[in-house]
Write a protein that binds this DNA or RNA. Structure first.
Lengths: 160, 160
DNA sequence: TATTGTTATACTCTATAACTATA
DNA sequence: TATAGTTATAGAGTATAACAATA
């Protein structure tokens, strides 16, 4: 009867169904808005991450679940468009850090506004109390984001 | 102060942040599980849709937000692997309907089990009551799925 | 020797344009 | 004439393998 062999559930299967459907819907919105600005979903995501972080290539790749080589191409294309820049870490001369440019930051802002605007009809179907409640219920499910370290402040004592 | 110029909000921006993060997380899981079976995210999704529907190519393309030509390739690859078949509509000789095969259905079942298993640690962080509540709060945000019409029953009177 | 990135290669995903067949 | 699909083509996204530089 039940979709699988858990004792009593049903709540879990319904929840997963809702989460998956909502995920596809959100991705649809992000994909469309990105496409209107010639950005893939991944590039949109990279912009959102690099907006307040300067991650190393390898950390970013790991976070995104992509191979290093994939990231090389992704960053190269964004760099060619003037949205991102590569910098070298003072601590490790092998490492490359990804930095957002002013143009990239402006585009990211515009993108975020559009996302809020397009999603507004949906989120508006809940009242503020329900929105807060939904946000709270979602929180325990979320994995932690990349630590938001804007820049390495310490001059890497011991290495230099 | 506020991320944009709404009157009082904050609840909306936090909610969107949560929805976007949860979407990327769910997509990450689906992408990984799909990849383990040599399926792209889109193909995984198509299988899930066609599991209990026989949509026409154009309807499926519209629902997925893809061009018809993109879907042709997608279905062709899945057909080559024996997961789907093409059929012709009795009502409209131009139309092609997409049908799942037994192998496709079995794979879809296995995929769904894996998704539930991988997502279990996350959903398990909520108790059943919270899961039901979260599902309910998500519901108003969701667009309707493709109508689940398994097969055209009526022999298309007037055309034949 | 191990790690960080890049490059070369190959395949999938995707859209645009041109085409065929049916309505 | 318009709609449903396919094919050809081209560009982006992706991973694997081989490589250079640094740790």
């Amino acid at each position: 009867m039940a979709p699988h062999d858990s004792p009593d559930d049903g709540t879990t299967d319904d929840l997963i169904d809702g989460l998956v459907r909502s995920a596809f819907q959100v991705m649809g919105v992000l994909t469309r808005i990105g496409a209107e600005h010639d950005l893939s979903l991944t590039q949109l995501r990279v912009l959102g991450i690099v907006r307040d972080r300067c991650p190393r290539m390898s950390d970013l790749a790991a976070f995104l679940g992509l191979d290093k080589s994939t990231l090389s191409g992704l960053i190269a294309r964004a760099e060619r468009r003037g949205l991102l820049t590569r910098g070298t870490s003072p601590e490790d001369k092998r490492a490359v850090v990804v930095l957002i440019t002013d143009a990239g930051r402006e585009l990211t802002e515009r993108l975020n506004e559009e996302i809020r605007r397009v999603l507004a009809p949906a989120t508006g179907r809940l009242d503020p109390e329900q929105r807060a409640q939904l946000t709270q219920l979602l929180e325990p499910l979320l994995s932690p984001p990349l630590p938001a370290v804007p820049r390495p402040e310490r001059p890497a004592r011991g290495t230099a």
